[in-house]
Design a protein around this nucleic acid. Sequence first.
RNA 1: GCCGAGGUAGCUCAGCGGUAGAGCAAACGGCUCAUAAUCGUUAGGUCGCGGGUUCGAAUCCCGCCUUCGGCACCA
Length: 596
Amino acid sequence: MPEHILVAVAWPYANGPRHIGHVAGFGVPSDIFARYHRLRGNHVLMVSGTDEHGTPITLAADKEGITARDIADRYSKVIGDDLFNLGLSYDTFTRTTTENHYAVTQDLFKTLYDKGYILRQETLGAFSATTGRTLPDRYVEGTCPICGYKDARGDQCDNCGNQLDPVDLIDPRSKVDGTTPIFKETEHFLLDLPAFGERLRAWISAQEHWRPNVRSFSLNFIKELKPRSITRDLDWGVPIPLPEYADRDDKKIYVWFDAVIGYLSASIEWANNRGTPEAWRDWWQNPEARHYYFMGKDNIVFHTVIWPGMLLGYGAGGVYGQAVEAYRDTPLQLPYNVVSSEFLTMEGKKFSSSRGVVIYVHEVLSRYDADSLRYFLTIAGPENQDTDFTWAEFVRRNNDELVATWGNLVNRTLTNVYKNFGSIPQPGALAESDSALISHVEGGFASIGDLLATARFKAALTEAMRLAGLVNIYLSEQEPWKVIKVDRDRAATIWYTVLRCVNSLRIYFTPFLPFSSQKLHEYLGHDGYIAGPLEFKEYTEASGRSHRVLTGDYTGWVGHWEVSELPVGQALREPKALFKKLDEKVIEEELARLGG
RNA sequence: GCCGAGGUAGCUCAGCGGUAGAGCAAACGGCUCAUAAUCGUUAGGUCGCGGGUUCGAAUCCCGCCUUCGGCACCA
């Protein structure tokens, strides 16, 4: 029975280009997972988009003298291009500035409000004297009332570590332009998280398949749940769907509230775009569906506490949940697993765009193959702990592992067979050593499959590489290039054995290395796409505004996570090297770029 | 300050109660079909420090040193 798998990927924030740490955390792992489940024949829905509301984008816009939408448009395109070039196979990668997203967000807000899960409260907020815009706590600086430190932030003093309220700072000033902020009363809406406290605690406690750090961190967090503000004094965001706020442009829904709703709204958009508007319910209102969320560790509580709280509150729904009779009493699905990564550092230092400690995705992809980056970010990525990216390691992993073990196995096999046979050779009776190798390698469908299903990507790729290494050892022992001079039939059998293994390894590597796996698929003489092209599509909504969606037609792809036939006599296509070996010089060149 | 994670071979990391592991780097040897790729052998660690629990501890507990995160209106 095929399963319905939702792959919900963190939404990259559109205030600038994304660096390789971001795609290491959520992008590559989620794509491996989605591609694996498609090969398994499951119904995969992989959604995300650019997160385009919030203060940082308005600040970036002010700086350049353009609108927030201009900033969002620019970086949504840049980020979408990066993900496309990395081969991240979203079913729908959209944006949070669509009409559809606004409608779904407002339905969530309105439903939670009507059910009493949203509270109203007057609070004292800081506003910029020059622009009138709200100043988040961290954008207010001043002297710490506790220790006297002069550059304390509104939320916390970096000197004494105490948590602060910006109103208490002595001589407060705006971090943006140094002016004195104005404090005034403003009404805010708060999500009543304590109302879900017991249900969340019971639910999280039961999730024993979560990574331990995710579960324990979340359980710790919900010990002290407070209502959480879900509106901001901003003109850039989803409007509050209440009559008294209909015409006001000074208060919007908080970016984090709408961003997590993106998982649902993008699923609904996917269904609409393909002309099956109710199809999203097969994932969201199907108790058998499994939802997997991928993100960095900084986002855990939004996905294990706040979003689940919102889903519990929404239940079987408002407008969207209730629309179809057959689903009317079916609540939206909670996450099945929340796969959080740690952080990637850069030559030993934390990524920092402002200090130039950064490597953008488009920079790497402009000079290196996507599969090389994908390989590094998987085998050496921050899956369980922070890991370090260095150019020296990148070159070494590429040359000594990817090229030497897997690339070279494919290359020596295909060039030999293409030259000597031109097609899959007819084997004689398999020797003990031949069938032992084949069955050992084919065991990867179970072992690697189990690791992938439980999101242990590093171990899965290590196992695939180990199996590729076994075939290299076999070749060294059998030496078919010698045997062929005296016994062509035996050489054919040896090469057939190797080809059988390479054919299975092709499947194993497809989730990790889609571009090279597609090439190998073709060199082996197979037809169709095992990892085909992605595409951008433009969609126009009722307002007339259009937006771009990264998607693809994955249903026609041909690979399956099982031993596949390798027909004797199938003509090979002329092979070329799958990967490029990198010159050691690039290490110095890249380090020079960082310094300059 | 509070909470949490890490400190294992020169390097990057895995192992997380039962005789210390991998890859790379190093040394030597085999092979030469293949992107000077590959295969084999060797060498290399009192698993941060100090206590404790246990027949037995990188693995559990306590303390310390050290690095790094989170601490809720930055996403």
